[in-house]
Design a protein around this nucleic acid. Sequence first.
DNA 1: AATACTTGACAGTGAGACTATGATGATATA
DNA 2: TATATCATCATAGTCTCACTGTCAAGTATT
Lengths: 250, 250
Amino acid sequence: MADHGRTKNRKDRIMDAALRIFAEKSFQEATIAEISKEAGVSEATVYEYFGTKEDLLFAIPEKITNDTFEESQAVLPYIKDVEGRMRAILLSYIQLYQNNPHYSALVLLQLMSNKRFRQTAAHEAIRRSAHNLLDCIREGIANGTFRSDADAYLIRSMLMGAIEHLFIHWHMQGKPKRDKTIMDMLDPFLEIVFNGIRAKKEQQGLTIHLNLQDTRALGEILQNGSMLKSPAQDVKPAPNMKQKNKQKTY
Amino acid sequence: MADHGRTKNRKDRIMDAALRIFAEKSFQEATIAEISKEAGVSEATVYEYFGTKEDLLFAIPEKITNDTFEESQAVLPYIKDVEGRMRAILLSYIQLYQNNPHYSALVLLQLMSNKRFRQTAAHEAIRRSAHNLLDCIREGIANGTFRSDADAYLIRSMLMGAIEHLFIHWHMQGKPKRDKTIMDMLDPFLEIVFNGIRAKKEQQGLTIHLNLQDTRALGEILQNGSMLKSPAQDVKPAPNMKQKNKQKTY
DNA sequence: AATACTTGACAGTGAGACTATGATGATATA
DNA sequence: TATATCATCATAGTCTCACTGTCAAGTATT
């Protein structure tokens, strides 16, 4: 293969450059000329690999999704606890965005670009997560974990919407608005949602006397007890959690 | 004003046509030629009113926002109850989208179009809602309505994110995915969130028996009461999209 | 009717997506 | 070493579309 001395393969170099430029400017404003220059290849080479500018746009999240998202989904079937499984789904979702800072911008660009978006791997991945979540919620309702009157669609939108909202804000305002990462918020977040939709159950075992006027004390008890810190604590975090950041390109 | 027999003023006709075409296609795919034809006006006239295609894109949500959003915000200061005020903010937010079906698409187009978005009335309206919400949440935390350890930013993202998520899905799948409107979901939604973040109080003086092994039960008991009404709408599977595929362009 | 203003038709410019083609030089194979 | 192959590049050219400029014709106001 004639590489003219360049090490990394051209297709990747083009996608890297395009990712940066698309995210920084916008689809209209980015030109193939600029992308090819940034990638150190000729314009014709871009067209060799990607038939159209739009193909290029669609290829990038496709690759990221296939590279980083798929494997993190593999553990899901082994998590029997509904809440733990939901946590794992959201975690992989968050990691997908977190590890690829420009990803959300690109996905939005695609979304707005045209109807083709529905056929992409990125959309498929999101769709599948959404579907899995819905199943979990229904399962939780069916087995009594969640209230029987809970609206599964609504709860799913709460879960995914909040995360997307956090990332969109992140994207719009430049990252470090706060010291807490979105990952840090996952458990408090889930606690609130689960808190709001858990079915009331009977209690067995120890009984204690509480004076319910003392709200503070109650709050302490609630948060220090094992239960309310994320029920999924023992669930092993999805594989690529170490934040390795394989290439700084993204 | 020379109107050549047309009644409605040209500027509005152009914006109407543009709103439809931008939302249906996308920014790139919509051409000024088509918009002007749809509006029954010459191409030059479009440029008379709107200097550039992008100006046209930005002018539309600007108008809608100013027309319909501002007044709905006027009542807010008079609602003293924190939760009631939060509900009102979200309600006006939902109405903004609901009354203008193409609005969300246009706002997203703007968002992705470029950085100018931050100076638009649409963005300003959203920003102000977001800000008001944050204030409400903080006030609720301060006055003991909400748990003291609640994360105000997170809660805001839950509230706004869920609504935006519902609308984006709505936009992507063609409207009537379900019989319930997004407005119908507002109260069940708020119930879950408030449920999850309300400070545990009331039940003054009552002593009850609790099992600390099942912390869930503790939470339930504390939150139990009036708010769990939400009629159990049985979940029906989403009638999956009609796959109409209006244009085979791609 | 006279003047001021608005609109339309049309021609033209420039940017940028995309194509076609032939030259170049690295690599594989004989 | 010689030859074939193939990725890449450079260049030139086509086409679509945003956008401009001009002028004639219509309408409003006086």
